[in-house]
Nucleic acid binder design. Structure first.
Length: 508
RNA sequence: GGCCCCAUCGUCUAGAGGCCUAGGACACCACCCUCUCAAGGUGGCGACACGGGUUCGAAUCCCGUUGGGGCUGCCA
């Protein structure tokens, strides 16, 4: 039977996502979770969430909550769990007993230093075999406090892992050392806990990152030993190892130097649908069209089509996707989505937080305006023109700040370029001050009046609007000027133009 | 060092022996549109790592080389 046929014959696939609680949700885990989720939804299977917290020293209960909420943000929900691996202790201990009784395990009294010393000595003698040498293998040491339990691996032969993504991968058993699977304190290590949990939770497919491929032979060996020791023949799950997510150097995304926390992207103003859509394209392709509803993604997803080579996590493309999704929002939806960034009271996080593209470090700006000056109605009036101009929600505050700050937030570079550096600026600003005094206050009239000012100054409108824009809005770029002035109001607009004129006079 | 994986534009990918003069998307460049900036439109630049086979025919199959990566812990 082919793999595809086997999958088709499987009545109810059971898959799992098994992150370790490290304080945040890693984008690599998110991508693996997504592919598991796609597979489960498409096949009518079950997705179980299992928190791999056997490393007690590095686990904290509250981290689990973060993983679940990040999953929920991405619109993914597990069908079962969360199970804590640490809660499976009884099953783990039973497995250890069975394995010990069957002779699959032996106690080892070697310390890390002793093992390293022997490896070194061997290397010096010309034997490059690395790892544990099986020193305690036939010593018949009894179990005891401080003694780890090692798995007796076969000395020869080949173990083949049939991977749904990579095909048959062969591992020479001679290179596989007797690995530790129970700590000196009696607690199980990853490989054992993982295999036991996959058995008790009846997993049919193990879909995970490629970094786990080298540890698969150990888990297969353990699985088979467990079949013998427990006297129940459980079928091995199908394995599918997903390509790694890498940075621009082609190296595995690392916590230290890459922005890997899903939470960071949420706080920066990425839409979950956009983020999820982008994630889906890392190592897989639905075809020429890339921006697709999740139903379509689920329908088209095939494990067999997953790419084998690593994928670079490209924030630029993510930004584009996010911009597209933002523009797909209705204006009310956009207002709602932007609320946390513009409304100082509703804000769950500081407006203006983003990830520095160079350092990858999160940057959090001051709350740009006090709650007393925020006006939701005014924001709503410029929302549609702001919506077209942002790729991430955290860009919104800088676009609308001129509405909520006491004075124009004048950027020095803009001032120098458009006002101080333009000899026609005083004339244009003066004309604006006068021209805006009496005219009707709507965007079309403002356009017409300003056009006249430009013509009088012998300028194209594009050039002539710059000093006014900077005087009122603070920057040479931003929302359309006349829409903005219309919302800001006649008095405030003229006050700011006059202020710019004063500053110019003071400088002269 | 040992074991394993990988190799199509800068990036994500389409491609399962002839449909490929290698398609799409992001980025980049130019032009158009335009009150700035975006968005949008049009066009452009740009890849089968290399060497051997197999075949009438290879991006697609095989071998080797080179390059990159992962693992190598009483972490997961």
């Amino acid at each position: 039977m082919t793999d595809a046929a086997a999958v088709a014959a499987m009545a109810e696939p059971r898959v799992r996502m098994a992150p370790s609680p490290t304080g945040y949700f890693h984008v690599g885990s998110a991508r693996a979770a997504l592919f598991n989720w796609f597979f489960a939804r498409q096949q009518g299977g079950t997705l179980v969430l299992r928190i791999e917290d056997t490393d007690e020293a590095r686990s904290r209960p509250e981290w689990t909550e973060g993983i679940i909420s990040a999953m929920a943000w991405l619109g993914m929900q597990a069908d079962a769990g969360p199970y804590l691996q640490s809660g499976e202790g009884v099953a783990h201990q039973a497995a250890i007993e069975a394995l010990w009784s069957s002779g699959a395990l032996y106690a080892c009294a070697c310390t890390r230093d002793e093992i390293d010393a022997r490896v070194k000595a061997r290397a010096a003698a010309g034997d490059p075999t690395p790892g544990y040498d099986g020193f305690c293998r036939d010593l018949g040491l009894p179990r005891g406090e401080g003694r780890a339990l090692r798995f007796r691996t076969p000395d020869a032969g080949t173990l083949t892992v049939d991977d749904l993504v990579r095909g048959a991968v062969e591992f020479p058993l001679s290179a596989l050392e007797d690995f530790v699977c129970v700590r000196g304190d009696g607690s199980p290590l990853f490989a054992l806990a993982n295999a036991v949990d996959d058995r008790t939770m009846a997993m049919t497919h193990v879909i995970r990152g490629e970094d786990l491929l080298p540890s698969t032979p150990r888990q297969v060996l353990l699985w088979e030993a467990l079949n013998r020791a427990e006297g129940r023949e459980l079928p091995l799950p199908f394995y599918a190892h997903l390509p790694l997510l890498v940075n621009e150097q082609g190296k595995k995304l690392s916590k230290r130097r890459d922005p890997v926390a899903v939470e960071l992207y949420r706080e920066q103003g990425y839409l979950p649908v956009a983020f999820r859509n982008y994630l889906a394209l890392l190592g897989w392709s639905p075809g020429d069209e890339e921006i697709l509803p999740v139903e379509t993604l689920i329908e088209r997803f095939r494990l067999e089509d997953v790419q084998k080579s690593p994928a670079f996590f490209d924030v630029k493309k993510l930004n584009h996707f996010n911009g597209v999704y933002i523009r797909m929002l209705s204006v009310p939806e956009f207002i709602e989505a932007a609320r946390p960034w513009v409304d100082p009271v509703a804000g769950e996080w500081a407006p203006g937080s983003w990830i520095d593209p160079d350092t990858g470090a999160p940057v959090v700006a001051e709350v740009p305006w006090p709650p007393s000056r925020y006006d939701e109605v005014r924001f709503a009036e410029v929302a549609s023109v702001a919506q077209e101009r942002v790729a991430v929600l955290s860009e919104v505050p800088a676009l609308v700040d001129f509405l909520f700050l006491e004075d124009a937030p004048i950027e020095e570079a803009s001032w120098q370029k458009a006002i101080a550096g333009d000899e026609a600026a005083p004339q244009i600003l003066g004309a604006a001050l006068a021209g805006y005094a009496e005219c009707a206050w709507d965007k079309d009239t403002l356009h017409a009046v300003t056009l006249e000012i430009a013509e009088t100054a012998g300028r194209k409108l594009g050039k002539a609007q710059a000093p006014i824009r900077v005087a009122v809005m603070g920057r040479t770029t931003g929302l359309p000027l006349f829409d903005s002035l219309a919302v800001l109001g006649r008095d405030e607009t003229r006050r700011r133009v006059a202020a710019a004129l004063d500053r110019l006079a003071a400088a002269a």
